[in-house]
Design a protein around this nucleic acid. Sequence first.
DNA 1: CATTAGTTATTAATTTAAGCTATAAAAATA
DNA 2: TATTTTTATAGCTTAAATTAATAACTAATG
Lengths: 312, 312
Amino acid sequence: MTITQLHYVLAIAEHKNFTKAAEKCFVTQPTLSTQIQKLEEELDVLIFDRGKKPIELTEVGKKIVHQARNIVNESDRIQDIVDQQKGFIGGEFRLGIIPTVMPTLLPMFLKSFIKKYPKVKLKIEELTTEEIMQRIHEGHLDAGIAATPLENELIKERPLYYEPFVGYIPTDHRLAVKKKLEVSDLEIEDMLLLEDGHCFRDGVINLCKAFKDQNDEHFQLESGSIETLIKLSNEGLGMTLLPYLHTLDLNDTLKSNLHHFNEPSPAREVSLIYHKSELKIHIIEALHNSISGIIRGAIAFSNVQIISPILK
Amino acid sequence: MTITQLHYVLAIAEHKNFTKAAEKCFVTQPTLSTQIQKLEEELDVLIFDRGKKPIELTEVGKKIVHQARNIVNESDRIQDIVDQQKGFIGGEFRLGIIPTVMPTLLPMFLKSFIKKYPKVKLKIEELTTEEIMQRIHEGHLDAGIAATPLENELIKERPLYYEPFVGYIPTDHRLAVKKKLEVSDLEIEDMLLLEDGHCFRDGVINLCKAFKDQNDEHFQLESGSIETLIKLSNEGLGMTLLPYLHTLDLNDTLKSNLHHFNEPSPAREVSLIYHKSELKIHIIEALHNSISGIIRGAIAFSNVQIISPILK
DNA sequence: CATTAGTTATTAATTTAAGCTATAAAAATA
DNA sequence: TATTTTTATAGCTTAAATTAATAACTAATG
């Protein structure tokens, strides 16, 4: 059994196809066929069920794949140890960011980070929390930025900042007269929400339900972007909640519709999340330092109340 | 990097000598030299400091060895998974047993175990708790039987039985008149103890100190075996404590000197201990079932108080 | 039911790399 | 300094990984 063979097993398990897996491994398909055969012969057990189309894992195969992922991850850590020893911060680093954090956070830290760590090749993708967790676990992402806590055993969290919710309330809304909002003011019925899948949406729903148990069966309107939410709100279709960093980019007219919460302000915890094996931990730490350094100037709320990003 | 290379690294780290490590790996010394060189070149870091005699690990080398042990252990688990799937219980299994458990427990379960699992080649060694832990960690033992709890992060414990302490008190001893002992009766001054290194000795000392803080500077007499303790005691040199299973083998004359404790009787917890990676867990479970099945008939104490095997 | 597209397995040749023997070089010991 | 012990190097052999070409298989389609 070799680490290379385990790589092949993982690639095939992922693509359910020898030919595609071979491409990803930069070898020819017969190489995979023979290496898998050798491994299966050595273990004297079938890993893949070639009868099914597309190819499927056998029962042992699933367990072997799980263990193979462990081994491959652990073996990657050797290079990591060496890099750490040398103080080398570089190489490819794949980062996933949730949509409601991406447009505000990224411009803030990206420039200074790539300047400070020019050898790190950052590859950033916009993904949902679920996709980020999945890909971290499969080894396709080195880390993610998402709302926490996630309460996932395999994933570690490192809080970056606490971002308060801010009410966006058009002038004709019943709450427009209130200078400071209370959580108890919120009515889910006239709350504009993001589409399903956004954890910010789930946070808002949790917040509304936190105070009174509201019916969550149908919401008035949903949208895919926060910008659209603001426009819908301006049309008089309801109020909405925005993450604090989003409010910094609004023009003065729109800013006049912002209503902050009385403290403790409800807020989401935004964290760097990564696999518990702490692969590439030195880059993760560099990222953490960069981001929390930048953000310290932008967000200064001492008293917040964290809202879970997971629907309860 | 290959798993084979990691094996070589571990062997050299262990023997501090290429030639001896090569023997253990069943290859020639030049093979090790070249493979280690290749690995060091690939990682671009020195793992061994050949300047020192005997050879030493570099700082990164130590971390690499630690990680290599992880990887090798994890990769062994693949065969383990396959064996488990096939229901195969067999192969070599190395078990370490502490001296005060060995002579009483081994005869009880060994025969029935090898009859039930003829394909397991048991290799049993008598070792101290420290040696067992060390060797489990280094991969030289698959499991051990020792007094617990050990509070070691890397080692899992699975209690087999609770073995009460029994007082052995010669007729002319001040406590000989008491039918049932109390912990508070014990005086470390007239207690015969095993030599240093036996955890049963430590258990007895903890027990004596549990009730009153006694001076542990010098004991009257120490011995390497429980049989000798009994003889010394018969000579009027003091009383001693025996593990319950030992008392079953005594002849009637000696048995008349036994004094049990009032419940809850102080007892030691005897457990199967093994590496947290749960390598060969199916054999460990088979062992556990065999032993606890056998012992259930021999020890039936409901109310015991566990004494720590570690000196506090 | 033959055809085709898409897939995995097989074969034979090639390249790579692991391991061996013999020996040199270096270091420790006498 | 001579001797012993230990690691490194060189050259060779053998085993294994990989490739290109192609066969065999499967599922879908006309």
